[in-house]
Design a protein around this nucleic acid. Structure first.
Length: 291
DNA sequence: ACTGTACCCTGTAGGC
DNA sequence: TGCCTACAGGGTACAG
C-alpha cells in the first residue's frame, strides 16, 4: 500500500496528535505484527511522549523521550487513524476517523482528552521495532537505504553511478531501496512513464552513451511525481487512508498505473497502456512513448 | 556480487 | 450462492 507519498501524508497527519503529548496507555492487542512487538512494549511507552515524528523511506520514526526510536512500517495494509471518543472536548480540534475492520485494530496509543491513535493492519505486513535513537543510522533496516529522493542527495550523477554495469532493468533498479529509498510499484511506473523510459530498459543504459541525459530526466520525474503525489495526499487504490479516514487523491492523476487498455495520457501520444509483470509485480507502461 | 523466486498474511475480485 | 485461483501498494531469505 504505502509508498513514500502515502507515508509522508500519514506522518503529517499524525504528528500534531502524536508529538509532545504523554502516552497515557498503550494497548498491544496481539503480541506481533509481521515481527514481534518490542519487549514490554506497552509498559515501555507508558507515560512517555514522542518528541518528533520523522519519515525515512517508507518508515515512520517516532523519537521518544529518553532516547528510544520507534520504527514503524505500514506494510501493505497498515493504517493509522486518529480517533476521539464521541463527545470528547477535542472533537473540534482534531479530525477523527473510523478505522477499518476493528478486528484488525492491533495497537492503540491513548492520549489525554480521549484522543487515541489506532494502528489497523489486516495483512499484518507492517511492524514496529524499537532501537536506541543513537543507533538508528546503523539499524539493519536503515543502514543500507539509498538517498531520500526528494533530497539533494538524489542527483543524475548519483543514479548513473549506481546504475553503471547493473544488468537489471530500470523497474528493478528503482524498486531497489538501496538505490533510491521510498519508491514502490506505483511511483516507479509513473516516474518511468513521465521520463519516457521503458521499464524493460537496462539499468546500465543510464551510464552509457546518452545515459546522463536519461538519468537527469528520470531523477527529475521521480522528484516531480513524488511531490505531486504528496500534494494530492497520496494514492488510494484500496486500503490506504489518511489519518482521518479520508482517501488520497493522486490515483485520479495516474498516467499509466492501473490503466491497462486505456489511452496513454501523454499529450499527443496515441499509445495504449500495457500491463506486464516484472519481478512478480505488475508494471504499467506505454509502449509508444516509453523507450 | 547479483538476480530471480518463494514467502510472510488476509481480503477481494473474477471465473466457473 | 459457493468454491477456487490469482492478485494486491511491502520487504526479506535463500538458492543458483
Amino acid at each position: 500500500m504505502p509508498e513514500l507519498p502515502e507515508v509522508e501524508t500519514v506522518r503529517r497527519g499524525l504528528a500534531p496528535v502524536l508529538v509532545g503529548r504523554p502516552l497515557l496507555r498503550v494497548e498491544a492487542r496481539r503480541p506481533d505484527l509481521r515481527f514481534p512487538l518490542p519487549e514490554h512494549f506497552a509498559a515501555r511507552l507508558k507515560g512517555r511522549a514522542f518528541e518528533r515524528l520523522d519519515r525515512r523511506a517508507k518508515y515512520l520514526i517516532g523519537h521518544l523521550e529518553g532516547g528510544d526510536a520507534l520504527i514503524m512500517h505500514l506494510g501493505m495494509t497498515g493504517r493509522f487513524t486518529i480517533a476521539a471518543r464521541e463527545g470528547a472536548e477535542t472533537l473540534g480540534q482534531y479530525v477523527y476517523g473510523q478505522s477499518a475492520d476493528p478486528r484488525h485494530d492491533h495497537v492503540v496509543f491513548h492520549f489525554p482528552d480521549d484522543v487515541a491513535v489506532v494502528y489497523n493492519d489486516a495483512r499484518r505486513f507492517g511492524f514496529m521495532v524499537m532501537t536506541p535513537a543513537r543507533d538508528l543510522d546503523d539499524h539493519p533496516l536503515m543502514r543500507a537505504l539509498g538517498p531520500e529522493p526528494l533530497s539533494e542527495a538524489l542527483t543524475a550523477d548519483y543514479l548513473s553511478e549506481r546504475a553503471a554495469g547493473r544488468k537489471v532493468n530500470l523497474k528493478a533498479l528503482l524498486m531497489d531501496q538501496r538505490v533510491v529509498a521510498g519508491l514502490g510499484n506505483i511511483y516507479v511506473s509513473e516516474a518511468l512513464h513521465r521520463a519516457h523510459l521503458s521499464p524493460d530498459r537496462s539499468a546500465g543504459s543510464l551510464a552509457t552513451r546518452g545515459g546522463a541525459a536519461r538519468s537527469a530526466r528520470l531523477v527529475q520525474t521521480i522528484k516531480d511525481v513524488l511531490e505531486d503525489a504528496i500534494a494530492a495526499g497520496g494514492s488510494t487504490l484500496r486500503d490506504y487512508r489518511h489519518t482521518d479516514g479520508s482517501r488520497g487523491g493522486f490515483q485520479e492523476k495516474f498516467f499509466v498505473y492501473d490503466r491497462d487498455g486505456e489511452r496513454c495520457r501523454q499529450p499527443g501520444c496515441r499509445g495504449i497502456v500495457q500491463r506486464t509483470v516484472h519481478q512478480g509485480r505488475a508494471t504499467f507502461f506505454c509502449p509508444v512513448c516509453q523507450r
